[in-house]
């Protein structure tokens, strides 16, 4: 990372912390949200929800905890694609003697991971993952498909000084379970346009860009090439701490029949459903707003305030 970029990230983080927008924890990428930041996030989220009401089909509104069955994470192939970002939950599961060992290590500041055991749960990497097995278990996809609204804290193990790259952040997603490819692709494309309008309406210099997912290793290179060549996923990016490397505020992704096949989501005629999703990183949108319009919300442009604090 260049010094300029690192300085820009540190400066922004310091400003957000000083204004009590971000409440620091001491761990990079892990913050609480202060009163004003949380208000802005709620307003952004309400705007996303209002924008989604343009969809004819009313979305089913499902809420899941920020942990999911580990088996689901494994089945979804997330660990093939981005194992470095995944988090699984471990807990102590030993004897009284093991406990003594554990405490000695804790007091000594040593690693005690080997005294813990991997549990059946893992941290949610993206809000939509818990949706697919539920939809599959409901049986053949109803005519016209389904639309599910999910909103969850997500975890990515990527500690960074960049206040726009949090380890734990909220993602509001709309997941389209479509009967066919055209429908799923149209959903994604429609959201690219609507998402850009939404972000630009807030005075953000948002642009559409091919997704740049950090797929792991050599296998990941092939996955990235596949994603780009097939134009599956797009990000809505906006400069926050760098004009050259703008930050993704939202993404719209056509999964083909990846989840449909993995989880056995079928149409009534036996063909496999296609899926797509759009996700907004609500903290990132808020931080982009503070970076663009300044730390003082009262001084933001009138039209931006009007849009967010609409009655």
């Amino acid at each position: 990372m260049s010094d300029d970029l690192l300085n820009a990230q540190n400066d922004l983080a310091r400003a957000l912390v000083e204004a009590r927008l971000l409440l620091p924890s001491g761990v990079p990428g892990l913050f609480g949200r202060g009163t004003v930041l949380e208000d802005v996030i709620e307003r952004i989220d309400a705007l996303v929800v209002r924008t989604a009401e343009g969809d004819g089909a009313r979305a089913e509104r499902w809420r899941f905890p920020p942990i999911l069955p580990r088996a689901l994470l494994e089945k979804s192939e997330y660990l093939s694609a981005m194992p470095q970002l995944a988090g699984s939950v471990h807990a102590f599961d030993g004897t009284v003697q093991d406990h003594q060992k554990l405490l000695a290590r804790v007091h000594g500041g040593e690693d005690y991971g080997d005294l813990q055991k991997q549990t059946d749960v893992a941290l949610v990497p993206a809000a939509c993952y818990p949706v697919y097995p539920i939809v599959a278990s409901d049986g053949p996809l109803r005519e016209g498909g389904r639309l599910v609204d999910v909103f969850s804290y997500c975890f990515r193990h990527e500690p960074s000084p960049d206040p726009a790259r949090l380890q734990s952040f909220r993602m509001h997603e709309y997941v389209r379970i479509a009967p066919d490819a055209d429908d799923a692709r149209a959903f994604r494309d429609g959201w690219i346009d609507r998402g850009l309008l939404l972000l630009r309406g807030l005075g953000l210099a948002a642009e559409r860009a091919p997704a740049n997912d950090p797929f792991f290793g050599r296998a990941g290179k092939l996955l990235a090439v596949n994603q780009r060549d097939q134009e599956l996923k797009f990000e809505l990016v906006c400069p926050i701490t760098s004009a050259e490397k703008p930050t993704a505020l939202a993404s719209a992704n056509y999964h083909q029949d990846h989840f449909g096949s993995l989880f056995g989501i079928k149409n009534a005629d036996g063909t496999t459903a296609h899926t797509a999703c759009v996700g907004f990183g609500v903290e990132r949108v808020a931080i982009a707003l503070f970076k663009t319009h300044g730390i003082d919300v009262a001084a933001w442009p009138v039209d931006v305030r009007a849009r967010l604090w609409a009655p």
Binding site: E77, L222, L223, N226, S261
Partner: peptide, 11 residues
């Protein structure tokens, strides 16, 4: 063949 399958095939 899916993208993920093509990766396994490659390896």
């Amino acid at each position: 063949m899916t993208s993920h399958a093509s990766v396994n095939l490659m390896l």
